[in-house]
Amino acid sequence: MVSEALNFVLQLLIFPGFLFIICLAFFSEWVLRKFVARIQNRMGPTYTGYGGVLQPFADFIKLLGKEDIIPAFAEKSFFTLTPLLCLALPLTAIFVLPIADHQALISFEGDLIFLAFTFTMLTIMVFLGGFLSGSIFSMVGGVRAATQLLGYEIPFLLVLFGPAIPASSLSISKISMWQAQNNAWGLWTQPIGFGVLVICLLAELELLPFDIPEAETEIVAGWNVEFTGRRLALVRLGRDVELVLASAILVDLYLGGPQQVWIIPPIVIFLVKMFACLLLIGYLKTLFARFRIDQVLSGMWKYVIPAAMIQFIILKLIW
């Protein structure tokens, strides 16, 4: 009993818990930066560690040591809460996703709903944090984040619940297990859903062509313009964790999750799939110019939502 509890705590804290996820987050940021840089004919990070692999971590440490400024006009409570939740929400969400094993650390019937809830919460925190930090740029950024949510949330939820129908379960672990056992990856059985999910995740992660809430040349850094020092460090780490979370969702819901192939442990398979998704996201990021907020909304409602609905209808007809 005691050893079981100890084991669980260790799993929670070290592997595949906090420590592993945070290291993975830093590493994914480096992979993304390096990959995008090479595509764009640049070097990317080079100095810290082998090939600059420690650069995201160095950035984090540097930001921790910087001055922490609370703007006089900001709402203090929300200004403090936003960076914390920006990190805490995606970290919590990752625990319901199976990573090292086909069973997630915390798994219960309906954790898919919990995942959807954390995503929406995250955007609302971004909106409030931006709106109440007392700068026009962050205010516009916050409003844009909320407006963008109106566009992508419906298709996002539709395709998030799509894989649950064939597996007839609302537990992510069961869905990915079902896909792995039946060899029916979501990518093959519902390809439209996969495409829609990638688009929605790009919007959720505020990556090009949907980086409207933090469009550098328009509104400086958007909603996070006022965050400095520790707060900015947390916000940025939160973004990295979100990146891992997004790739992990793609893997678990559409690519069969961590499965044992021959003698290769599931974690390796999971990481391979995850980085494939990460590179896909990074590749898409370099391909486009930024849309305008009204173009995103009309595009989402005109094309992405119908596509998600068609996928849903097809699923209902088959199963």
Binding site: Q40, D211, T217, A289
Partner: peptide
């Protein structure tokens, strides 16, 4: 101009 519309890849090239 490419950078202004967020198209950094073209900007770098």
């Amino acid at each position: 101009a490419a950078h202004e519309i967020g198209f950094d890849t073209l900007f770098m090239y």
